[in-house]
């Protein structure tokens, strides 16, 4: 018989364990869970998925640099792993080139957009320090790449079953987009605790997406093969997509 005193095996949802919320319902650090330090990379992955508020709180504490470094390290490892799966479509050189391209592309995109994010956050009245902004971007990258690892088995099945570069490109783009949406939710949640004005952030998100899309073209081919390791000539990403669909 069910014992009414026995606590439920799955706890009722609590704010710290809930989804990423853009509106700050409670100040960060209100719950004891949120104050718990994040001692390892595994804990960082767990926290970004289940307790994003814990990550946000820890990013405001002294010594957040270690957490940021850990998040960036995991992001690089995850993007290299997903890149390897992308590379299995073409094999050969792409087995190491695609992981490098994806990891480098993500890091360079983040670096290129970081100054503008800081400026936009200041323009929006945010009190966030630069290291917090770096931490939020690291969190975005971590969540995005961890989710890409979740998509990796599906991506592998499809990469073994099709010869169409356009179809595989579209699939990876869809996975990237879904993962990025979750990453951006984390970023939004972080800035929601600093400022109520989100217009600048929306502009920055649009810029960041465009930069990443253009980066995928600048470092092409990520899917498929080419005669040279680096692209010859410059292309806008939409032109590149149209060319890929036409099989050029």
């Amino acid at each position: 018989m069910n014992d009414p005193i026995t606590p439920p095996l799955i706890a009722a949802p609590v704010p710290s364990a809930g989804p990423i919320r853009t509106a700050p319902s409670l100040p960060l650090g209100e719950g004891p869970d949120e104050r718990a330090p994040i001692p390892s990379v595994i804990a960082a992955i767990e926290s970004i998925l289940r307790q994003p508020r814990r990550v946000l709180f820890q990013l405001r504490q002294p010594g957040a640099g270690r957490l940021i470094a850990a998040m960036l390290l995991v992001s690089v490892v995850c993007s290299l792993t997903y890149g390897f799966v992308v590379g299995t479509f073409s094999n050969g050189v792409q087995l190491w080139a695609a992981p490098l391209r994806i990891a480098l592309g993500l890091l360079i995109s983040a670096l290129v957009c970081l100054p503008s994010l800081y400026i936009f956050s200041c323009l929006g009245g945010s009190q966030a320090r630069l290291i917090e902004v770096v931490g939020l971007v690291a969190g975005l990258l971590l969540l995005m790449t961890v989710l890409l690892i979740g998509f990796a088995p599906v991506a592998w099945v499809f990469s073994q079953s099709t010869g169409s570069v356009a179809a595989m490109g579209a699939l990876h783009l869809a996975f990237w987009f879904i993962s990025t949406c979750f990453g951006i939710r984390f970023l939004n949640a972080g800035f929601a605790h600093h400022s109520h004005s989100g217009d600048g952030l929306k502009v920055w998100i649009a810029i960041f997406l465009l930069v990443m899309l253009q980066m995928s073209t600048a470092l092409r081919p990520i899917v498929g093969t080419a005669d040279t390791l680096l692209p010859e000539g410059k292309k806008f990403f939409i032109t590149h997509w149209v060319d890929s669909v036409k099989g050029k």
Partner: peptide, 13 residues
């Protein structure tokens, strides 16, 4: 793996 990640992200811990 994906399902395990999506559940907490969508609000179910």
């Amino acid at each position: 793996l994906l399902n395990g990640m999506l559940a907490p992200l969508l609000g179910l811990d």
